[in-house]
Every structure is written in structure tokens, then in C-alpha cells.
Simulated assay, not measured.
Amino acid sequence: MLTRRGTSVGIGSAVAAGAGRLFGMGELLVLALAGIALISGSVVWTRTRRIRLRIQRSVQPARVHAGGKARVQLVLTNLGGHAPLLQLTDPVTGTLGARLGVGPLLAAERLSTSYLLPTQRRGRLEIGSAEVDVVDPLGLARTRVGEGPRTMLVVYPATQTLAPPRLARGPEPLGLAADVHTLQRIGEDFYALRDYTAGDDVRRIHWPSTARLGRPMVREDEVPRRSRVTVVLDTRSTAFDAGPLIDERFELAVSAAASVVLASATRHDPLRLLTVAGADTGFVTSGEGLAQVFDHLADVSTSAQGSLRSTLAAAAATAVGAVVVVLGGTVFDAARDAEAISAAGSRTSSMTVIRVCRPGDALPAGGPGVVDISTLAELGPKWAAAQTSSQANAVST
């Protein structure tokens, strides 16, 4: 295979040969033959190299938030004889990929090289497979001598540092207790029964009561169950006004949802992610469950399917704790959405609504638990103010 330089020399040789025959100039014919001879020699030289390479790749870290640093580490091991100058190409989704010059390598020599990945936007970056070509000394021809494995980098949404959502104590078992540590000293004696909800430990099902009542019942101990957080993400395409900035507004909504998820995870709350399109992670805690939530946020996109009312009803039906709704600020039917939010809010102990809008948008006035943002930087202070206001209202009532 010819390189760009080799292709240029080949085209020049062909033009020189044509001009030499046309004008009867022997010098041009000699020049053309010299170019063809160089190309032929380079092709033969690269194809006769006996090179065996082993390519290993690692990505650190395998998951990163947008804007974070992720580095690809490549290790090339020469399993054959002396290797001349090599050209390594590592394709990366959505980019031109990485092109690196490597070598020469002695027999059994190992060489490590690395490069940074673009992580400005959330999503998945597929890396590889790496291709290594041997290039002749003149840079006219190349021959592939090795290929490496494929690797995936998951880029999570950008986030802001937030305080965990405020949790009303009323609906929680022993919710009036002011201190978790005090409750832990009480013990784990049997306390009460309640209906089973998604995410409960099946080992706490009280089978005699379940058989008697005909529905799953769960034992409640005096050690309080941690309050739950449900995050509802609006994915309706009508909720984000059409135009060149629709992607930016939806990305802001996803980042706001991810920020709430991350804040809840720092308190080790069982949390659940619902999207209007119908996705439901169920209640998860730390570890792989939390990684699955962020993996979904890395892939989520807008959809023409789904109903905000039914999604909020599902959240309110099993929500014990806080519900946070991330809503597109420009909606097709604002009145119906406000009604759905109000109905769901009346059945939950704590609800906060984050509305994503454009700068200068005049949205209907929201209550103390409504946060309007047009940039991610606004989320932190406005979230803190809304949580403080909601807590003050809860105390006053």
C-alpha cells in the first residue's frame, strides 16, 4: 500500500512519463522511471519485512465524567527481528483517531506510548482496533504488520457538586427520630409490617402475612430504612424547543439529573432513575447498580414516546423519600405538565422540580421547590436555596 507521499510520487512519475513521450524529452522519461523504481523498491522492502508485534491497550479510567481526563496506554512488544520505523493508527469514535510514529524496535523490545481521549461530551467512545504499519525509509510504501483489540470508554454527563436532596421524615419508618446513630442503638427487633415495594430486600418478606393477606408484606425493624430518592428525567423531544440549541438544553437536563444522582450516592441513598420514555433502573445503591444508572445517563436521548403524567404517577406510587423531576422548560403543554407535577407532589413527601430553560425565558412562576436553570453553573446555588426553602416550609407546617 502506498503512503500519501508514495501516491504523489506515482502521480508525478505518470505525468512525467506522459510529458516525456508527448514532447520527446528523454529526461522526463528517466525521471519517471526513477520514480517508479523507487516506489517498486519501497513496496518490495516493506513486504519482505518479517515483523511480529503484540499490541496491548488499556484505558484509565474506563469511565469518566465529561471534561475529565482519560488516557489510552499502548504497549507494543516486538516478537520478531529488528523492526524499522512503524506507523500506529488508533481509531477513536467521532474523531480522526490517533496517529503515532513508533520505532525502530529491537528484537524483544517493548515500547509504551499514550495519548489523551476527547471527553467533552457524554456517550461511548470506541477505541481501536489499532493498526500498525511498517513504513520504508523513504516513506513511500507501507504494509500492515499488526492489529490490536478494541476498547470502550464510557463518558458520563458533567456534574455539579450538590447537597443530597432534602428528605421529609414523616412517611419513613421511625421518621420522626432525629438521629440515625440513636436508632442504631435501639436494636433490630421486629417492629411492623408494610407493603412490599420495588427495591426491598426479598429476605425481609414476611411469608405468613403475605399468605394471609394475599399480597407481599415486608418486616420493618426498628433500625430505620434509608430514605429513597427517585429522579425523573424528561426525555420528550417536545419538552426541548426545536432549534440549534436543543442538544445543549437536553445535555443540561441530563447533567442536572446526574448531579442529583451523584449527590444522593454520597449519602448512600437507594435511588431510582425514571425517564419519560419508559426506562426504569429500579432502586439501586452503590457499586454496580449505581454504575448502571450512570451508564444509562451516558446513553440517554430524547424521544417522541412517553407521558410525563404516567411517569410521575409511577414515581409517586413507590416513592418513599424525595422525588426530583428534571423537566424541559419549553414544553408543548405546560398546563397539563404543571397539573401532573402537582398531582404527583401531593402523594410524595418531598418533591423538587428542576426546569431547564433558555436564558431570558419567562417561565410560569414556580413554588419553593422549583429550580430554573439555563447553565450548569446555576444549579449549585439555586439547588441549595430551594432545599433550604423547602426545609423552612416543612418546619413551618
Rank of each mutant, 00 (worst) to 15 (best):
A256V: 00
D269K: 02
N78R: 12
A177M: 11
G369N: 14
V132A: 15
L153P: 04
V276M: 11
R5D: 01
T375Y: 10
R5N: 07
V145L: 12
R5K: 15
V276C: 09
L74Y: 08
A19I: 02
I36L: 03
W383I: 04
V9C: 03
H206I: 02
G345I: 03
V370F: 07
V261H: 03
R228P: 05
M217Y: 03
G345Y: 09
V30D: 03
T302D: 04
S301W: 02
S310T: 07
V284A: 14
G68V: 10
A37D: 04
A277I: 03
Q160G: 06
G367H: 08
A130D: 05
A384G: 02
L363D: 06
M351E: 04
D295P: 05
P61Y: 11
D295I: 00
D201G: 05
S40K: 03
D361S: 13
S112C: 07
S390K: 14
L88C: 07
D241C: 12
R124K: 14
H65K: 11
P91L: 07
G20C: 04
V300D: 06
G41C: 05
L252K: 09
L140H: 05
V202R: 14
D295G: 14
A313M: 11
A130W: 00
A340M: 04
T210V: 13
T266F: 08
A98D: 03
A291E: 11
G380D: 10
E172Y: 09
A298L: 10
A265H: 12
V223E: 02
D234K: 04
V370G: 09
T311L: 00
L162T: 02
L327H: 15
A338L: 11
P208C: 01
G199R: 01
A362M: 08
Q387Y: 02
L193Q: 08
A377H: 11
R215V: 12
V92G: 06
G97P: 02
D221W: 01
S303T: 09
R5L: 14
R49E: 05
A316V: 07
S286N: 11
A279C: 01
A340T: 02
A392H: 11
M1G: 10
G360N: 01
V64Q: 08
L96G: 15
L28A: 05
L153E: 00
H181T: 12
T143V: 03
V293I: 08
I11K: 00
